[in-house]
């Protein structure tokens, strides 16, 4: 009796919420995107895709592993067409879980270099992020940070700031170190980095850069775009920080800086497979890569795609040509090494 009006209100409230939730439909005009990227600057890209192709994008954003678990639960009925992640490790885990189908198109092969994609076409990297070093220009000479190995030397005892081993970007970096130098040497490197830490790992990459400026440490290990975002952002204090703190691209095994990708793959049971491929190719297009470089300060994946400011000043760095697929699968090993060394 009294419950009746209550239930009406509840239903109405649900209706209020649901009118903004789009129906995921299998049809020619839509594509269902599961993405771990949640940058506002990506939104205009989705609009442009819809305008150019007439295909509507339905989006679910979440952490990569939540999205992977959801796709697993949905099974064969999953509406997911395309899965996007900002880390190669997550793409590899999705592949391991059998969530991708191999896709090869002339456009993708042409736009994505071989080392930035999975050999069988399960996933493709469409933008690059380098995990490098921000250093205090007043105390550190650039040649002291031109190799990851030098960070492990006695010069930087108590001088390094870096975030915790929970960070996928650190796991991928250590995965790459294992791949490049072999496990025993990687173990030594990780131990030495832990010994060189100025403080127990805390905060995000931006916090490490700020800590350098605050004099807590002399070098910080960070992803490139966090620094670029601080340097070109609206926050005057952050811009001041980047006056004092500079960016260096150390080399791994003499072959160049460690590079991770953001990218995606077509879902195994994609109801809109053709549209998913179109969207993936759209992400790999020069315009999209330039948009992402300009607004999220990542590096383009395709060689020859000119990077716009502020990325252009750094875009010609030497990147380690190691295939991302090989370090992506070493995250578990990396975590074990780091935990054993006390990298919390």
């Amino acid at each position: 009796m009294r419950l009746f009006p209550l239930s009406v209100v509840a239903l109405a409230a649900l209706g209020l919420a649901s009118c903004s939730g789009g129906e995921p439909a299998a049809g020619s005009g839509e594509v269902n995107l599961y993405t771990a990227r949640h940058y506002d600057s990506d939104l205009p890209l989705y609009d442009r895709f819809t305008k150019e192709t007439g295909i509507k994008i339905n989006r679910i954003e979440g952490k990569a592993d939540e999205l992977i678990a959801r796709m697993q639960s949905e099974g064969a009925n999953s509406p997911a067409d395309l899965f996007i992640s900002a880390d190669a490790g997550a793409l590899w885990r999705a592949q391991q879980a059998g969530l991708f189908q191999p896709v090869t198109t002339a456009t993708l092969t042409e736009r994505v270099p071989a080392n930035l994609r999975e050999p069988d076409g399960h996933w493709y990297g469409t933008s690059r992020r380098a995990r490098i070093v921000a250093y205090d220009a007043a105390k550190v000479k650039p040649e002291e940070v031109d190799d990851y190995a030098k960070l492990a030397g006695p010069r930087f005892k108590g001088k390094i700031c870096v975030r915790s081993s929970d960070s996928v970007y650190n796991l991928s970096l250590v995965g790459a170190v294992i791949e490049q130098l072999g496990k025993p040497a990687a173990e030594q490197w990780v131990k030495a980095i832990v010994a060189n830490m100025a403080r127990p790992p805390e905060g995000g990459d931006r916090d490490q850069i700020r800590a350098v400026a605050a004099g807590v440490c002399e070098v910080a290990i960070t992803n490139s775009y966090y620094y670029l975002r601080m340097a070109s952002g609206d926050d005057a204090k952050d811009r001041d920080v980047t006056q004092r703190v500079k960016l260096a691209f150390p080399s791994l095994g003499g072959k160049g800086a460690h590079v991770n990708i953001s990218g995606g793959g077509v879902a195994k049971n994609a109801p809109n497979r053709a549209n998913a491929i179109k969207l993936l190719e759209f992400f790999a297009s020069a315009e999209t890569q330039q948009h992402i470089a300009k607004h999220n300060n990542e590096f383009p994946a395709t060689p020859g795609v000119a990077a716009p400011p502020p990325v252009d000043a750094y875009a010609d760095f030497t990147a380690n040509p190691m295939p991302v697929a090989v370090f992506a699968r070493r995250q578990g090993e990396a975590q074990a090494l780091m935990s054993a060394a006390g990298w919390r």
Binding site: G21, G22, N32, G62
Partner: peptide
Amino acid sequence: TMILRPFNFDTLAVLASNYALDE
């Protein structure tokens, strides 16, 4: 909310958390 929400469905908590994750 994060793991069960339908397509194109944000809540304020989701937005706040996503921005923070992205620093």
